[in-house]
Amino acid sequence: MRVEQLAINSQCTSHRNLEEALDAYAAAGFRNVEPHLNLIKDWLADGHTVEEARRLFESRGLRVVASSQLEVICFGSPDARMPNLRANAENARLIRELGADKMIVGTDGPEQNSVEALGLVADAVRELAEVTDDTGVEIAIEFNWSPIVRSLQSAVRVAELADHPRVGVLFDTAHYHVTPTKLADINRGSVRYIKHVHLDDMPDKPADLTHRDFDRVLPGEGVIDLPEIISALERNGYDGFFSVELFNAELWRLPAKEAARRCYESLVRLCS
């Protein structure tokens, strides 16, 4: 992992305004940012334009590399799914206008989980990719942000069934830790679908009793063998961004610049 691959997800400094957050990320040393779309949309709602948002990032030497907001609704009637499809398509266009090319999504689930139901997830995500062909934005399915896509294996199965070059997987080390995903699953066959990576660590307690979000700690402060995972990803062909994503109450209580500094320093220690 190289310094130029490091990124920060704005969830690490939750409840901050966009300008304060970007000042903090730039001061910490980050050059790549993964802002949650709520942060962007709140700023736009205050009367700003997308072009002004782009200049806000550029003036601080930052670029947007990915973003997220919504799940993809895959089940139910077409009439019920259509507003969600339109909203996700609008998000993809906003992400493209901000200069990024990755949109991370979750999914809903069926009444009864089954391998066959993964085909309906694949159909819905492929449809989203097709209606956003003009953006070039890649759709990364985040496993465990879904009641059915619960592991790297199931996310890869969906990507395989979707059979679209812009449909892939978001790999998150916290989800890796708390799901049936194993190190051996990070192989050439799965990594070819991984579009983006979230890095975080987890405390020393049973994985099945660990909350997938709110128990996250800074990389290096938990029990996940992050160097081993990063090595497996890179050995099998991953060369994208590594974005720290934490939902950590202790970090949220800190000034944004201090929280961002701690995030950056925890990542730099993992760089080769």
Rank of each mutant, 00 (worst) to 15 (best):
M82S: 12
M82Y: 09
P83H: 00
L85D: 00
R86D: 12
A87P: 14
A87K: 10
A89D: 13
A89V: 15
E90A: 15
N91Y: 06
A92S: 13
A92H: 09
I95A: 03
R96L: 09
R96V: 00
G99E: 06
G99R: 05
D101H: 11
M103R: 00
M103V: 03
I104R: 05
V105S: 03
G106Q: 14
T107D: 03
T107C: 05
P110W: 02
E111C: 03
Q112A: 13
Q112F: 07
N113L: 07
N113P: 15
S114R: 02
E116L: 11
E116C: 08
A117R: 08
A117Q: 14
A117L: 04
G119I: 11
V121D: 01
A122K: 04
D123T: 10
D123E: 13
V125H: 01
R126D: 06
A129N: 11
V131H: 02
V131W: 03
T132E: 11
T132F: 12
D133R: 14
T135K: 12
T135Q: 09
G136N: 07
G136T: 06
V137F: 11
E138N: 14
E138C: 13
E138F: 11
I139Q: 12
I139E: 09
I139F: 10
I139T: 14
I141H: 02
I141S: 09
I141N: 09
W145E: 02
S146N: 03
P147K: 01
V149K: 01
R150I: 07
S151V: 07
L152Q: 04
Q153F: 04
A155R: 08
A155I: 07
R157M: 14
A159C: 04
A162P: 09
A162K: 04
D163W: 04
R166Q: 06
V167E: 02
V169C: 12
V169Y: 11
V169A: 09
